[in-house]
């Protein structure tokens, strides 16, 4: 149970840390500019949550065992975060392209009907 709770906290933490990087921030929030304050806040929150995730694991076992488990947990978290960011960005790009081509078709149809 503790493993699952720690996994969930750590997953959120790696996501927040990734968001503190301008490159990934832009992938999610394209319209917002990341400020220095936002970056620092996200980093602080992310790292604090990682400590919390380790602490949760250490509640019912020794710290050495908790750290060993955490290295396994964070391996999965990083891969899932990386997959999420790319998939999200690609999905949005695809829907944007579809919207663009839909708009283009509408404009073309309007101009054709105007001609005739």
């Amino acid at each position: 149970m503790m493993l699952l709770i720690s996994f969930a906290i750590s997953q959120l933490a790696t996501f927040i840390i990734a968001m503190s990087m301008p490159k990934h921030y832009r992938q999610i929030l394209t319209t917002h500019q990341q400020t220095g304050l936002v970056k620092i806040t996200l980093m602080l929150v992310g790292w604090s949550m990682i400590i919390l995730a380790i602490f949760v694991l250490a509640l019912q076992q020794s710290i050495s065992l908790a750290l060993t488990e955490y290295f396994g947990v964070v391996t999965l978290n990083i891969i899932l975060t990386a997959l999420f960011f790319d998939s999200y960005a690609r999905k949005r790009a695809t829907s944007k392209n579809n919207a663009y081509s839909r708009n283009r078709n509408t404009v073309q149809n309007q101009s054709i009907s105007a001609k005739y």
Partner: peptide, 10 residues
């Protein structure tokens, strides 16, 4: 560190 979470599919 910069490319820590980078994964460009396809």
């Amino acid at each position: 560190f910069i490319d820590f979470f980078t994964f460009r599919q396809f």
